[in-house]
């Protein structure tokens, strides 16, 4: 039991990653509002950032700056650098998604998926 608790507590960051990821995915799938979908997508992407950042952290490690002192423990900077790139990609995706939502609102007058689907149904004769 103690082992289990220690295992859960020790992987605290990873549990948060899983919870955030599932929350984000659930919002994307379950919400019909396009802005909420993008918000869900953002949460999902943020969970990936957390995952990478946690991966690079070394227990007791400091910032990876070369101080010249021997035997200093520092965190792995590579995943942190990678995730900077992924954050930029995430921002670009959000920007494109929001721009598309604006154009959808302009041409349909709504950002609710079911309203748009209804319009499609009447637009296209079977």
């Amino acid at each position: 039991m103690a082992d289990l608790i220690r295992s859960i507590a020790g992987h605290y960051n990873y549990w948060m990653f899983v919870i955030l990821m599932m929350t984000g995915l659930f919002i994307v799938v379950s919400r019909g509002n396009l802005i909420k979908k993008i918000a869900g997508l953002n949460i999902f992407q943020t969970s990936v950032f957390l995952f990478y950042i946690s991966m690079g952290k070394v227990t007791g490690g400091t910032a990876p700056v070369n101080t010249g002192r021997a035997g200093e423990v520092y965190s792995n900077p590579l995943p942190h650098v990678l995730i900077l790139t992924a954050i930029v990609v995430g921002i670009a995706t959000t920007a494109v998604g929001l721009a598309l939502a604006v154009r959808i609102k302009e041409s349909y007058g709504s950002i609710e998926e079911d309203v748009i689907e209804d319009m499609h149904r009447t637009e296209r004769p079977a």
Binding site: L25, V28, L34, K37, L41, F44, Q45, V48, F51, A86, V89, T93, V96, G97, L100, A101, R103, I104, S107, Y108, I116, H120, E123
Partner: peptide, 23 residues
């Protein structure tokens, strides 16, 4: 105008795919 909605759906699915890939 259906192209906008198609692009939006493509964006959602594509981003989920890319995020899975990066995980």
């Amino acid at each position: 105008r259906r192209a906008f909605k198609a692009a939006f759906d493509y964006l959602i699915m594509g981003t989920i795919g890319a995020s899975f890939f990066v995980i």
